[in-house]
Amino acid sequence: MLSLFFAPLVIIGTGWVSSPLPLFALYIAAGLGMAGVGMGVMHDAIHGSYSKNKTVNKLVGYTMNLIGANANVWKIQHNVLHHTYTNIDQADDDMNAPFFLRFSPHAKRYWIHRFQYLYVWIFYGLSTLSWITAKDFIRAARYRKMGFFKDRREFRRTLYKIISWKILYYSYALALPLIMVPLPAWIIVLAFLSMHFVTGICISMVFQTAHIVSETSFPLPEPNGKVSEDWAVHQLATTSNYAPKSNWLSWMIGGLNFQVEHHLFPNICHVHYRSLSKIVSQTAKEYNLPYYVKKSFGGALLSHIKMLQRLGAPKQIGA
Results as ranks from 00 to 15, higher is better:
232 A>Y: 14
153 R>H: 08
128 T>V: 12
141 A>N: 14
108 K>M: 05
51 S>W: 00
153 R>W: 01
116 Q>N: 11
144 R>T: 13
72 N>G: 02
288 N>V: 05
213 V>P: 03
80 V>A: 09
151 D>A: 01
284 A>E: 07
245 K>F: 03
299 G>D: 09
266 P>Y: 10
156 R>F: 11
100 F>R: 13
43 H>P: 00
170 Y>L: 12
9 L>E: 03
112 I>T: 14
13 G>Y: 09
101 L>R: 02
136 D>A: 13
252 M>W: 07
52 K>R: 14
188 I>A: 04
139 R>E: 08
237 A>S: 15
141 A>K: 14
235 Q>V: 13
154 E>G: 12
275 S>R: 15
247 N>R: 11
47 H>V: 07
222 E>N: 15
6 F>I: 15
290 P>E: 06
215 E>S: 10
311 L>G: 03
149 F>C: 02
287 Y>A: 08
186 W>I: 11
61 G>C: 07
14 T>H: 12
189 V>I: 15
172 Y>G: 04
177 P>E: 00
249 L>P: 07
223 P>A: 05
13 G>Q: 05
298 G>S: 10
96 N>F: 06
187 I>F: 06
304 H>L: 05
306 K>V: 09
288 N>F: 05
282 Q>N: 14
143 Y>C: 04
188 I>G: 02
221 P>C: 13
280 V>G: 02
102 R>A: 00
60 V>K: 00
237 A>Y: 06
64 M>S: 13
226 K>M: 14
56 V>R: 04
305 I>F: 13
47 H>Y: 10
17 V>M: 04
198 V>N: 03
247 N>V: 01
263 H>L: 11
175 A>E: 00
216 T>F: 09
190 L>K: 07
106 H>T: 10
31 G>Q: 01
23 L>A: 06
299 G>F: 12
147 G>C: 09
111 W>N: 15
49 S>V: 08
229 E>T: 15
295 K>Y: 04
29 A>Q: 04
215 E>C: 02
273 Y>R: 05
228 S>A: 15
56 V>H: 07
63 T>M: 05
145 K>S: 12
301 L>G: 08
173 A>N: 01
239 T>A: 01
44 D>K: 00
36 G>F: 01
249 L>N: 10
316 Q>F: 08
104 S>H: 12
14 T>Q: 14
94 D>Q: 03
139 R>W: 13
67 I>A: 00
219 P>L: 10
263 H>K: 13
170 Y>D: 00
15 G>F: 08
201 I>H: 04
208 Q>R: 12
136 D>R: 01
122 I>K: 10
94 D>M: 10
226 K>V: 15
37 V>M: 09
162 I>T: 14
15 G>H: 10
65 N>F: 08
158 T>N: 13
84 T>A: 05
214 S>H: 07
132 I>E: 04
302 L>I: 14
201 I>Y: 03
166 K>L: 06
47 H>P: 02
6 F>R: 01
35 A>Q: 02
200 G>E: 03
127 S>E: 03
43 H>Q: 02
290 P>I: 08
246 S>Y: 03
205 M>S: 13
79 N>K: 09
279 I>V: 15
82 H>Y: 11
35 A>V: 08
286 E>A: 14
175 A>F: 15
139 R>L: 13
82 H>T: 11
259 Q>E: 09
62 Y>R: 12
203 I>G: 02
283 T>Y: 10
176 L>T: 12
129 L>C: 09
84 T>I: 08
